[in-house]
Simulated assay, not measured.
Amino acid sequence: MGYQLSRRALADAFKSWSGTYDVYAPTVFAGTGRFSETDVIRYGKVTDPADIVWDARSDYSFKEILIPVCQVLFYFTEHSVQESEFPKKGAIIFLRSCDLHAVKRLDYMFLQNGPEDYYYKTLRDKVKFVVMGCDHTFDGCFCVSMGTNVSTNYDAAVNFKDGMYYVDCPDEILAAALKNHAEGTCDVTADHVEKDDVEVHIPDNLTSAIAKSSIWDEYDKRCIKCGRCTLACPTCTCWSMQDIFYTENGKAGERRRVQTSCMFDDYTLVAGGGCFRQKAGERMRFKVLHKVLDFKKRAGFQMCVGCGRCDAICPEYISLTHCINEKLPQGMKEVLENGQ
């Protein structure tokens, strides 16, 4: 059984949840876009369903809620260490089906790929996910090709039509508030896309030998190594540690975990000033093969979820979908002809 709610009724449900949870959803941040006086759609706290953007894909993903761009892990002095405080409330995150599939990738990286990450798990255990139904595809999306267009393991799912919200809610805690404020009941199935305008076909014969192909040289001239693609990606999880000292003697300060990227200069910097993969093409190769080859070998499923954000945000119009569909087959043909 699902629930039918008006904007005001769902806002009342938000208020009922607010004692325990903050609600995060894609919303417009006016005047903070990439260009002067342009807007950006990213995740923020919302108290009114009217503030949630339904008719466009967010420029950035939900992942900053689970893995903040800059997260203080602990504070230290000469004689003591004190853990930083976590948010007192849990989080309810409104997200698309592809992004919910991205959570599976984050869970693998932080909870299954070695010892559990304490900081991620502490936040993860306090989160509930609400799928936003997609009744149409967005420009550059290829979730159908990646098998991420349908999700069923949600806490709730919402379709927004003609000013009304239709909610399926398996989670009992969330359902209690919805039941109190609903204006009717109905059967609800989360909307999902069955065909995208863009299709992606990962070559069946793709192997690591493609790393020796010349296809990557093109990106030396085009990519500016800004890292926007990886910061917008919901499945990129790389980070670095930074110690910030409060005093000159270096005995008091804080340790931070800061998001970084394989596209940045300092990502492979080692002692002595050595830096691996200095060329942009080498970094593009590392990123692409991790998304569609290396990760699957270890985890059993593709890392990329087909959200299309990387293509949309790149200032040089570099397309991951074009790389997969055109460059990878070309590269495999080249290495096979060369006997590599």
Rank of each mutant, 00 (worst) to 15 (best):
G2M: 07
S16H: 12
D22Q: 14
A25N: 09
V28R: 12
G31L: 00
G33A: 05
R34A: 13
Y43K: 03
V46N: 05
D48V: 07
W54P: 00
I65H: 10
P68C: 09
L73W: 06
F74T: 06
S84D: 13
K89N: 04
K89R: 15
A91H: 12
A91E: 04
L95E: 10
H101A: 11
K104W: 09
L106H: 03
L111K: 03
G114P: 05
P115G: 08
Y119S: 02
L123A: 08
D125R: 14
F129C: 05
D171C: 01
A175K: 15
A177Q: 09
A177I: 03
V193H: 05
P203D: 02
N205E: 08
A209P: 07
I215D: 00
I215N: 00
K221H: 13
K225T: 11
K225W: 04
K225P: 00
C226L: 07
G227R: 12
T230I: 06
L231H: 15
P234D: 03
T235P: 04
Q242E: 15
F245W: 10
R255W: 06
C262G: 12
F264P: 06
T268P: 12
G272S: 09
G273R: 07
F276A: 15
Q278I: 11
A280Y: 05
M284N: 09
L289T: 01
D294F: 15
R298A: 14
M303S: 13
V305A: 04
G308P: 02
R309E: 06
I318S: 02
L320S: 01
N325Q: 03
L328H: 01
L328C: 01
E337R: 08
E337D: 09
E337M: 12
